[in-house]
Amino acid sequence: MTDIVASTPPAQDRAARRMRRPRWMGHAGLIIGLAILLTCLLMALFAPLVAPHDPYAQDLLSRFAPPVWHEGGSWNHVLGADHLGRDYLSRLLYGAQISLIIGIGTAIVSGIIGTTIGIAAGYFGGKVDSIAMFFITARLAMPVILIALAVVALFGSSLTVVMLTLGLLLWDRFALVTRASTIQLRSQEFVTAAQIQGASTLQIVRHEILPNLLNNLLIVATLEMAQAIVLEAALSFLGLGVPAPLPSWGLMISEGKASILFEPWLITIPGIALFLLVLGTNLLGDGLRDITTPQGRN
């Protein structure tokens, strides 16, 4: 009858390429996310060097100076100045420090709590697991913002209090993810082998479980970092986050609120910074998940 079709029609190549595109897209998100985050990190680190003004220096003559692209704007205050005449660009640069400290600090605190609970639940299973799940559900039931507001109000507002409070409140995802992975790891050969060789539980967790959780932990950490950054901004916006002269972006938006009618850029500028940082962190987390799980996003 007929011979085998020898050449591959071009349509097949195209279809084959389409298969790989989602992964590439994941990488694009990852790269954008990483770029944004690095920019913020540099802003925070080098704020003292690059900031044109002291972020706390008030200058009554410059009050409500518009940004340079507005009518009447000048290069002296590139992003304008706020109601006290403080240079907005300088405040924005220093504000990155606050967001990043809160984000990273909260991720570390909540990561330690959540990972401990998650590993314990996944490794021991049974009653321990039930109790851990109970704690996780209870945690989910608590209204985060409200409790954070109340705690900050009661303990006084400071960077440390906000960070610790958020850390104590945002460990649930860490716990759920580590629990699920630990359950999978627990029955793997190398864990069984270590058990047979008489390794202690702590050793197994240290040497067999934790290293295998690192990928997932990193992903959750970025996502929690993003959430913590938003929450800090929200708390500061509501007046119960970090205290007043600090250039927290949430606080800047809150202070700009009074000028919403005539100087809306006082709100939009720190908002865009906040949005970009959170977007970048989320993109990084999603991207990491895409490239570490075989089936990609979904």
């Binding site: 938006i253 939009t268 949005f275 977007l279 989320n282």
Partner: peptide, 22 residues
């Protein structure tokens, strides 16, 4: 979805006010 997850709701609210009320 990605934008929605990154937009702080209080800022989004203020933006909407700026656009639709002011």
């Amino acid at each position: 979805a990605v934008v929605g997850q990154a937009v702080p709701s209080f800022w989004f609210a203020l933006l909407l006010i700026i656009v639709f009320s002011i």
